[in-house]
Computed example of a mutant assay.
Amino acid sequence: MFLPIGPAGEVPVDASGTPLHLSRPPGPPNAHLTVRVTADLSAVRMSLAELESLLPPGGRVVDPRAFGGDRVVSRAVALLRHREQSGFDPADGSPLYFEADGVVAVGAAGRRIFPRVDPAVIGLVELHGEERILLGRNARRGSYWSLIAGYVEHGENLEEAFAREVREETGRRVSDVRYWGSQPWAVSGSLMVGFTSVTGDEHPVGETDGELIETRWVSRPELADLPLARPGSIAHAMITQWRDEWDEWRNTWTAR
């Protein structure tokens, strides 16, 4: 079976939102880049026009970020991206040749090169003693509100990276940083690692780096009025879990 993927990771789905699969590779042999994803499924790079020609009634082409929690789609997008961005061995500049699986590359020196994963951190910052979390609007993606996030730097652990990102982007200091969960984010070749934390800094205590155009403390009822990170992202999962935990506690208390 073959999973068609668009030039920017787009995924064609049927009317129910299920990704489409092809029983055979499209076009003549070697017409499309193909990478093995699982033992019985390969990913095939196709143009948007080709994807649209495959759509059944009610089908559509979906942004890959909607499938952030889908391991198969995430792996397919990531492996195709790796294959297209890895043309030469970074050690000696020799052309890379891919092994039979289409995943592992080999240069002139025989060194095996595996797909790269860039760790990133993201998380909830809750104001101490209050039921509010800190959300921000990114300067490049300002149409929705999301959690504080950023890439891990060399020489720091994940908790340190998250605390640094919060300080740089919002001017707040955090404590009690705890692991929440993780999610592959194939669009950028990342692994998103989620944390929860607490701060006593309602207002910034230092300068920020300008990555966020706005930050805001938000209560649970206020979330319903804000455009949030899309479903399928770890940010959306963390925000909605925080919101729903309060509803579950309140319902349990009321039922007593």
Score class of each variant (00 low, 15 high):
residue 2 F to L: 11
residue 4 P to T: 00
residue 7 P to S: 03
residue 10 E to S: 11
residue 14 D to Y: 07
residue 17 G to D: 05
residue 20 L to M: 11
residue 21 H to P: 12
residue 21 H to T: 15
residue 22 L to W: 08
residue 24 R to I: 10
residue 29 P to A: 01
residue 31 A to H: 09
residue 36 R to C: 06
residue 38 T to V: 09
residue 39 A to I: 12
residue 40 D to R: 13
residue 42 S to Y: 11
residue 43 A to R: 04
residue 46 M to T: 10
residue 47 S to P: 13
residue 56 P to F: 01
residue 57 P to M: 13
residue 59 G to W: 07
residue 60 R to I: 03
residue 60 R to H: 08
residue 60 R to A: 09
residue 61 V to E: 05
residue 62 V to G: 10
residue 69 G to S: 15
residue 72 V to M: 03
residue 73 V to Q: 08
residue 73 V to G: 06
residue 75 R to V: 05
residue 81 R to N: 05
residue 85 Q to K: 09
residue 88 F to Y: 10
residue 91 A to V: 11
residue 92 D to K: 04
residue 95 P to L: 00
residue 95 P to C: 03
residue 96 L to P: 00
residue 115 P to C: 02
residue 115 P to E: 00
residue 122 I to F: 01
residue 125 V to T: 05
residue 126 E to F: 07
residue 133 I to C: 03
residue 137 R to Y: 06
residue 137 R to V: 04
residue 140 R to D: 13
residue 140 R to A: 13
residue 142 G to I: 02
residue 146 S to N: 15
residue 151 Y to M: 13
residue 155 G to L: 03
residue 157 N to R: 05
residue 158 L to S: 02
residue 163 A to V: 11
residue 167 R to M: 09
residue 172 R to M: 09
residue 173 R to G: 07
residue 175 S to W: 04
residue 179 Y to R: 09
residue 180 W to V: 09
residue 182 S to D: 14
residue 185 W to T: 00
residue 185 W to N: 01
residue 197 S to N: 00
residue 198 V to K: 02
residue 199 T to Y: 04
residue 205 V to N: 05
residue 208 T to Y: 02
residue 209 D to W: 09
residue 209 D to N: 14
residue 215 T to G: 03
residue 219 S to I: 08
residue 221 P to V: 14
residue 222 E to M: 11
residue 228 L to D: 00
residue 230 R to D: 04
residue 234 I to A: 01
residue 236 H to K: 04
residue 237 A to K: 15
residue 238 M to K: 07
residue 241 Q to D: 08
residue 243 R to S: 04
residue 245 E to L: 15
residue 250 R to Q: 11
residue 252 T to C: 06
